[in-house]
Write a protein that binds this DNA or RNA. Structure first.
Length: 646
RNA sequence: GCCGAUGUAGCUCAGUUGGUCAGAGCAGCUGAUUUGUAAUCAGCCGGUCGGCGGUUCGAAUCCGUCCAUCGGCUCCA
């Protein structure tokens, strides 16, 4: 007998050789059917793998991340089996799980191709094979055996992978007529895969190397229940409807022009108004938090970026220097605001008593992103960072971090991003060589971030090796209304630039010290933030932010004058309104303005004119009654105050 | 940048094998109607069919090339 410790620290005895399914069965039969994987002493195992020693375990179902991983990875094998059936001689690259589903990179035999039209038959065959309930059988292989198998199969991709593995660590998995090199784990058998959908096809280089052969990547997703697939497909539909590129066009927020250039957004009046309100919102918070506004030019001498080190790293692959009539004089479009802010810091000497100094600027920067990478407002070549740089003493780091976190949390709360998590990016613990700055400072900064996050009680994951070479950072990821994750704000510690720009302050010891710099952008960039906000709200912005808050709809032309009067009064109350005086029936005007997502439709006809009132209709809710104008203005003001309340 | 797909009016899209195929709806304009809570009717305007070049008697349609967009890859200070 062996001792099995459950997550709740319960310990029970099982016969040696027990597996996850057996353990689950001892709890409930229905649970046993749902188990896809198990954690055994910190390692993820197959649910059917025998446990021969005392162990601490955790059972996983599809709902768990680890359970999904096994499920989708197994589905990738099932897809590979099916592809071998339809395309004999196909060579297989890698087939991992991704955030939503899985893919397999394949090299089709000469002259063969695969397209969306082939998906239905592949899906059908996959389900047919799934229904055979073929077990996933794990076998350990010697390197020689493994090489022999794939040499006979003539799959150079697997051979390459195996050649890099250490002998004694190689395992194969077999299900039905298919055998693959695989670390695992896998689900017990194919039978629990009940729904399958192939999603798309794309080219991908073998091992991500553009000099190597391009393989065909087939993406798919699978579920243990048909209903889950339907829900997922609905979510994709919903995501399509919320696409900020589509809504941005419909609502006339922004556009692009081939003539201006790709990746260079043009903000239309309504978008510009929206953005301005977001900026003012943040400016007000920043004023309250002791930030000082600065303004810097869009270009700087090339030497500035040589000093910062960015020219060496990005110069060749970015916008090229601007030349002037003066021989040898070169300027760069600024790819970031930091060097300019460092120069502002240097414009006068600083005492330790002055710190922290916080310079804030909505600074527009230019980066030559690869053309294929541009995407709506989320990836552009010119964007405006809600940037600020905090210059502080090392002992102030944690305090400043806490304050920045406060700002970010206030923004999330006000804009209704209820779900978010943070990622703390630290040094690679095994290799400190690629990082600049003293060990002591890094330790201080890393613990400052960790403690700040802990103090605020934030949901966070720590990623080792993800820090920038110049310092650790904290990133904020929000989940939008339909569950998609977006990276927004970032707070980064920087030891590099203060060094390179030789920034100093005079300490209480009358000696010169180097300040620490914090880069922070709670929105990330205005472009990206507005894009995420559009997708989060589906264009139904909070009342305080939306470009047009109310539209006045006269029943007929006779009431246009009254409508204009109402609009003027509302505008005096700072409520953004306009009159829809088109010669259309009221039903048509309601429909059009509902579709335009205007939050309030104010209908005026004979009754309203006589009683000096308006009939209020809330977008998506219908008629909510008649009010006089002052009453309505107070009503709106209250709603806005509620939204902005801390 | 690479692979693949796409590009027809302001928007959404038709356009079979190259030959009255330059179309529809919405938007806009004009007129009629004067309307009470999700589409009133009629007329009109609007396109070098992404750009350039080629094949052909003839090209939105076939070929080449460039540009842009989309989906991926790679990248993201």
């Amino acid at each position: 007998m062996i001792k099995i410790t459950f997550p709740d620290n319960n310990v029970r005895e099982f016969p040696k050789g027990v597996n996850a399914i057996d353990i689950a069965k001892s709890l409930s039969n229905s649970l046993a059917k749902e188990i896809t994987a198990i954690e055994v002493n910190g390692e993820i195992w197959d649910a059917t793998r025998a446990i021969n020693e005392d162990a601490t375990i955790k059972l996983f179902k599809f709902q768990d991340e680890e359970g999904k991983d096994a499920f989708w990875h197994s589905s990738a094998h099932l897809m590979a089996e099916t592809l071998e059936f339809f395309y004999p001689g196909v060579k297989l690259g890698i087939g991992p799980t991704i955030e939503n589903g899985f893919y397999y990179d394949i090299d089709l035999p000469e002259g063969k191709s695969i397209s969306d039209n082939d998906f239905p038959k592949i899906e059908k065959k996959m389900l047919e094979l799934a229904r055979q309930k073929n077990q996933f059988i794990r076998t350990e292989q010697t390197k020689a055996e493994a090489l022999k198998y794939f040499t006979e199969k003539n799959d150079e991709y697997k051979l390459e992978l195996i050649s890099e593995l250490e002998d004694g660590t190689i395992t194969f998995y077999e299900q039905g007529n298919f055998t693959d090199l695989c670390r695992g784990p896998h689900i017990p058998n194919t039978g629990i895969i009940k729904a399958v959908k192939l999603l798309k096809i794309a080219g991908a280089y073998w091992r991500g190397d553009e000099k190597r052969k391009q393989l065909t990547r087939v993406y798919g997703i699978s579920f243990p229940k048909q209903k889950m697939l339907e829900e997922y497909l609905n979510m994709l539909e919903e995501a399509k409807k919320r696409d900020h590129r589509k809504i941005g066009k419909e609502m006339e927020l922004f556009t692009f022009s081939k003539s201006v250039g790709q990746g260079l957004p043009l903000w239309l009046p309504k978008g510009a108004m929206l953005r301005e309100r977001l900026e003012n919102f943040l400016k007000k918070i920043q004023r309250e938090h002791g930030y000082e506004p600065v303004i810097t030019p869009h270009i700087g001498q090339k030497e500035l970026y040589v000093t910062s080190g960015h020219y060496a790293k990005y110069g060749e692959d970015s916008f090229q220097p601007i030349k002037t009539p003066n021989e040898g004089e070169e300027f760069l479009l600024k790819p970031m605001n930091c060097p300019h802010h460092c120069e502002i810091y240097k414009s006068k000497p600083h005492s330790y008593k002055d710190l922290p100094i916080r310079y804030a600027e909505f600074g527009t920067v230019y980066r030559y992103e690869q053309s294929g990478e541009l995407h709506g407002l989320t990836r552009v070549r010119s964007f405006t960072q809600d940037d600020a740089h905090i210059f502080c003493r090392p002992d102030q780091l944690k305090e400043e971090f806490l304050k920045v976190i406060d700002i970010v949390l206030y923004i999330f709360k006000t804009l209704d991003f209820a779900n978010f998590e943070t990622q703390i990016s630290l040094r690679d613990p095994d290799d400190h060589s690629k990082y600049i700055g003293s060990d002591e400072n890094w330790k201080k900064a890393e613990s400052a971030i960790i403690n700040a996050v802990k103090e605020k009680g934030l949901n966070s994951v720590i990623e080792y090796g993800e820090a920038a070479f110049y310092g650790p950072k904290l990133d904020f990821m929000v989940k939008d209304a339909i569950g998609r994750k977006w990276q927004l704000g970032t707070i980064q510690v920087d030891y590099n630039l203060p060094e390179r720009f030789e920034l100093e302050y005079v300490g209480s010891d009358d000696k010169k010290h180097r300040p620490v710099m914090i880069h922070r952008a709670p929105f990330g960039s205005m472009e990206r933030f507005v894009a995420v906000l559009i997708e989060h709200t589906a264009g139904k912005f909070p009342l305080w932010l939306t470009p047009e808050q109310a539209v006045i709809l006269p029943i007929s032309e006779k009431y246009n004058d009254y409508a204009k009067k109402v609009s003027n009064i509302l505008n005096n109350y700072d409520i953004r309104s306009f009159v829809d005086d088109r010669n259309e029936k009221i039903g048509k005007k309601i429909r059009d303005n509902e579709l335009k997502k205007i939050p309030y439709l104010l209908i005026v006809g004979e009754k309203e004119v006589d009683s000096e009132t308006i009939a209020v209709r809330k977008q998506g809710h219908g008629d909510i009654g008649t009010m006089d104008i002052k009453e309505y203005a107070d009503f709106i003001r209250l709603e806005i105050e509620k939204q902005l309340a801390n």
